[in-house]
């Protein structure tokens, strides 16, 4: 029931809604968005290719 909503807004936080509610409708906003897009492109490139296998393989012994 809550699944779709949870996907979109899993951790309701006022501050973030504020950001979403008042998008910076200016060049600066566009610039920020394009920077973030570039960053996400880059991250898609370097992110572990098989996320599930990688996460499974990352097992550590408990330490202090």
């Amino acid at each position: 029931m809550a699944e779709r909503e949870q996907k979109k807004r899993p951790a309701p936080r006022e501050s973030e809604e504020k950001i979403e509610a008042t998008p910076v409708a200016s060049e600066e906003g566009e610039k920020l968005k394009s920077e973030l897009d570039d960053l996400l492109d880059e991250i898609d490139e370097v992110l572990e290719t098989n996320a599930e296998d990688f996460v499974k393989s990352y097992i550590q012994k408990g330490g202090q």
Binding site: Q6, E48, A51, V55
Partner: peptide
């Protein structure tokens, strides 16, 4: 969603 393995990978 938040429990997607890609987010866990990204976290590490």
């Amino acid at each position: 969603a938040w429990d997607d393995a890609r987010l866990a990978a990204l976290d590490i």
